[in-house]
Design a protein around this nucleic acid. Structure first.
Lengths: 231, 231
DNA sequence: TTACCGATCGAACGTTCGTTCGATAATGAA
DNA sequence: TTCATTATCGAACGAACGTTCGATCGGTAA
């Protein structure tokens, strides 16, 4: 079941783009259109439950027509996740670029993520829920992007702690993953049309996390550690 | 694809248990054995990707033999989730029963959940990851148990805020779901054999969450709710 | 026009799936 | 023992799946 193609990530896209200049737009747009339809289907019923026939109906293209743009169902999922993760990572990096204060960085990072979530809910649901649906080289390619995002968030957190609570003995991995847990679980319960505004949700998540790590850092870091094992 | 049987939850189990007293043990044990094998398979490859043939191989029972104990693949998933959620809910309620201090309640609740997770990782992964794989009446039955767990956690949180930060203007739903996000995301990254001890992880999650809601409650609750973050 | 090439399609192929059927072996009561 | 019930199994069925094939359509360069 696991794919094992060693192809470069952008091989097909680069090859296509080099051929013509007029048909390129049309081809890319058509592929994007199919991927957007697939994103809706994957988000609604899940990747495994979704069939290529459902995708063709959503994209209003014939079954064989879809295979003119992608080799396999797995590649559709790969392209969705690759584009979404890279787009999110780029956008967060952009908004973070001019900011030096770690506190402000954390605020902006969470706010940007929540805003991106609200603007691309189906895509981010597919990214959060289908993390193990890819295998082989495709999984590794996605993992590389995910690791970049992890390092970005962890870096912000570490600078925050260095500045405001340098003596804290907090496990940075646990802290980072608890934030990702909150953010990646959003698709299960947060409906921007029914609940609070994205801004308000981002603000509360940020406030909770910031006071959380700072407060826990001083509690767990100052005195002697009790029963649990630590350094 | 969605099941629509209106049967009572324990119908088959109650019927079986009333027939004999000797064969009941054997029958129940055999069913549990099959469910445990299915739990491993579902956790490893996912519910949709998993086939009944994989389950039969893991349980070392023939294909038709499994259908002597369950009507369908969907019922297997239902039984796994129903038993796991009820077992977790019961255990948390038990450990919480004698405690009145909300701070202590939160500590015990998180610690019990993490301990249960470590002791039943495949089962809790199936519960966290396959929440939408059931449909119809089965989904509603599970949803009822999940709501009980939600209310239990939210009640602890509300009593905590009432006691320590009664003036806070924190959205309780967002706060509760952020905790569930952290807990339900554990299966993605926490490996008790490699990382910190369950006790240490539970302690840090508890500390972060408690300082988070208390700190954010005072920050967001005192002054007028403006646009940016104040204080 | 002609010749070509990418885009699109209906139809089919081989596989795997969940589930069922009929028969056989094991079990316990009489 | 005999008999009825339960447990187990090999084999098969029909449906749905991902994917492929060969033909046709439509636009473009010469």
């Amino acid at each position: 079941m696991i794919s094992r193609k060693p192809e470069q990530v952008f091989a097909s896209e680069a090859r296509r783009a080099a051929v013509t200049t007029d048909a390129k737009e049309s081809y890319e747009d058509r592929l994007t259109h199919i991927l957007e339809a697939a994103t809706q289907v994957f988000a609604q019923v899940g990747y495994e439950r979704a069939s290529m026939r459902m995708v063709t109906k959503a994209a209003r293209v014939s079954l064989a027509g879809v295979y003119h743009y992608v080799d396999s169902k797995e590649r559709v999922l790969f392209l969705i996740q690759f584009r979404t993760f890279n787009s999110l990572l780029t956008k967060v990096r952009e908004t973070l670029s001019g900011i030096t204060d770690p506190v402000e960085q954390l605020c902006v990072m969470v706010r940007t993520h929540v805003n991106y979530f609200v603007a691309n809910m189906p895509a981010l649901k597919v990214c959060s829920h289908e993390l193990d649906s890819l295998g082989g080289a495709a999984y590794d390619d996605i993992l590389r992007v995910r690791r970049e995002y992890y390092q970005l968030a962890r870096g912000v957190l570490e600078r925050l702690m260095d500045k405001l609570a340098p003596d804290a003995e907090l496990d940075m991995h646990v802290a980072t993953m608890s934030l990702f847990g909150t953010l990646n679980w959003l698709y299960r319960w947060y409906d921007p049309k029914r609940g609070k505004s994205p801004h308000a949700v981002a603000r509360q998540i940020t406030a909770q996390f910031m006071h959380g790590v700072l407060g826990a850092g001083t509690e767990l870091g100052e005195g002697a550690t009790g029963t649990g094992r630590s350094t």
